[in-house]
């Protein structure tokens, strides 16, 4: 099979293949195919949420713009950068595990958790500040969408911590190590990241 430099082959099941420093040019789906079906399903569901938001926004442009002005763009930028770092760390974790460097993989997954936690705290602080200033879920339609989209994303992030816990357990238990399962957990975490990238653009940047 044609290979390109970049990574070693993944382990499957409890068997472990030697790291060769190469990745097959076209290999099976990263992680479990079922996760990709779920990811695509979730992606289309979020697209429907976003479309309804945009339609309602064009119908009430002035109200949405006025309320959008209450959000701090820099907080949105910070949250986006934090999730991007977490995605980078989990991608490094997958690569390290593939190469059999499980200590490095664990370090990277702990960093992923740390940055995920920073995002959660930042989001709670942002919600708290908005509520203290009188902008709640029922204030107006923009804030209804704001709380709905950020809260459902927050829920996905909490579930992401369960996946990270599974990945930690996989890496820490040699008899259970499955590269496929580690990749599955990473796929879910990246999904949280790219959904936030879209939420950020729609809530904080668009006009």
């Amino acid at each position: 099979m044609t290979t390109v430099a970049g990574a070693g082959p993944r382990e499957t099941g409890t068997g472990r293949q030697p790291a060769t420093g190469t990745i097959p040019h076209e290999r099976p789906v990263p992680g479990q195919p079922d996760m990709w079906i779920f990811v695509l399903f979730e992606a289309f569901v979020f697209t429907s949420y976003f479309t309804v938001y945009v339609i309602r926004r064009t119908q009430n442009a002035d109200l949405f713009l006025q309320s959008q002005g209450q959000l701090d763009l820099r907080v949105g930028i910070f949250n986006t950068l934090v999730l991007l770092v977490s995605s980078w760390c989990i991608a490094r974790c997958v690569q390290a595990a593939r190469d059999g460097e499980f200590a490095a993989a664990l370090n990277n997954i702990y960093l992923t958790m740390l940055f995920g936690l920073v995002f959660l705290v930042s989001k709670v602080l942002e919600w708290t500040a908005k509520i203290e200033h009188g902008f709640s879920f029922t204030s107006d339609e923009f804030f209804s969408f704001y709380y709905f989209l950020t809260a459902i994303h927050f829920l996905h992030l909490l579930i992401g911590f369960v996946f990270l816990g599974v990945a930690v357990h996989q890496i820490r238990t040699p008899a259970r190590r499955s590269q496929e399962l580690i990749e599955t957990c990473a796929t879910y975490w990246h999904t949280i990241d790219f959904l936030w990238v879209l939420i950020f653009a729609l809530l904080y940047v668009m006009r």
């Binding site: 390109v4 990745i23 097959p24 040019h25 076209e26 290999r27 099976p28 789906v29 990263p30 995605s87 980078w88 989990i90 991608a91 997958v94 990749e183 990473a186 796929t187 990246h190 990241d193």
Partner: peptide
């Protein structure tokens, strides 16, 4: 890149 779809089946 991060999700490695560039190496996945088309």
């Amino acid at each position: 890149e991060f999700m490695e779809v560039r190496h996945a089946p088309a």
